[in-house]
Design a protein around this nucleic acid. Sequence first.
DNA 1: GCAAAAGTGTTAGTAATACACCCATGC
DNA 2: GCATGGGTGTATTACTAACACTTTTGC
Lengths: 233, 233
Amino acid sequence: MAYTSEYPFVYLTADVVALCMRPGGLSVLLVKRGGAPYKGRWAFPGGFVDEGEDVERAARRELREETGISTRGRALHQLGAYTAPRRDPRHRVISVPFVAVLPEIVAPTAADDATHAEWLPVEELVGSRRLAFDHAQILADASRWLSEALERTTLATAFLAERFTITELREVYEAVWGRSLDAGNFQRKVTNVPGFLEDTGERRIGGRGRPATLFTAGPTSAIFPAMSRERDR
Amino acid sequence: MAYTSEYPFVYLTADVVALCMRPGGLSVLLVKRGGAPYKGRWAFPGGFVDEGEDVERAARRELREETGISTRGRALHQLGAYTAPRRDPRHRVISVPFVAVLPEIVAPTAADDATHAEWLPVEELVGSRRLAFDHAQILADASRWLSEALERTTLATAFLAERFTITELREVYEAVWGRSLDAGNFQRKVTNVPGFLEDTGERRIGGRGRPATLFTAGPTSAIFPAMSRERDR
DNA sequence: GCAAAAGTGTTAGTAATACACCCATGC
DNA sequence: GCATGGGTGTATTACTAACACTTTTGC
């Protein structure tokens, strides 16, 4: 099938910046490129949007096809659009990346086209030249967006299993913000936001020290007043 | 000139949501569409991005061509990308809108293709069906973005002339947030943010009451702690 | 008992709110 | 003087930050 046009056009791709917490810290799901351009570099799962296909749907489809990971029931956040004329050396390709926050569960499966997918720590990638296209910039923008989202929304719970402790929640904040938080003050803050956390009445057993209460995410998505990240900027 | 492709493609447009303060409140610059689709409805200035052209540059160019208004030296903020498959009934066209905040100076000139441009109050447009394409959604998103930007950044000064009074600045906040603010507390807040306002030493003459001090915008772009918009959400 | 982790109490400091009140101008 | 709008003072309340302290478990 061939397409013709009297005017200049562009190709449209959807990418997924999938994030989760792993022992090495905040990590992002990447696939190693098997072909040109940027062969051998890492890139976000993603690909061309089909004719008539919704961009967010395309992002979910590409993630599933390339890594086997499903985002059913999870919100994706559109980061914007990356449109620089030469970001892809072959054609003008514009990318609409979506951020997906996932709990640490699923290992990616072998990809469909002989590439392979892996979780890599965000911290090791930001300054490096290991990412293809403008994906280092997209990752930096995703990271900044996430930091700000954690201030005003309850998104941090999306990194955790259905039931979690307040310490696990605090560790998400500490990993994303790159600083330690006072455990006592954090406890008080999050439990005083109505609808943020729901007490299950159960305790986590088996750890050292006093058993922690298990919570589930509540119905609220906004945190007011915001979690405070720093005194000055 | 004709273009061919073996894969589905899209057209890329850049639009400008130009905002300014007018007697009727926060207003947006619109052009009346002279042709199909949506003939007779209002739309943001904008149009197709040229081959190899930067999207932001295209936005500035289209605004200038259609309304005569220059955005030299002013920051544009990319709102994201609007990509729904049927947002334009003719072809798949994706729009990258940019928000421009302008002082109340320039009346738009006659447009280049027999359409005409006008400033219309945002408040009258949000619920109405007077806008073409998905521009009502884009305007709502721009309005929300602006409200949030005024909390954390010094963007409000971009609505004002080079020299302005604190009351004029407060009126910007009141118009965007749709609520009145305590004049005394507002005064204290903005003057205590280092680098927000710079005292020119001059006074506004000719008004009623005590003459107000004239300020210029300072070098700071972030406000910390943020301006508070409301107690609860 | 002791270490470890969860969770509470306490105090000080900072900022937002409400509103009273003084200041400087035109008329 | 009086009205008008600019600007400051002050008390209250809300939240954050620092950190001491208590609770509850495993060993």
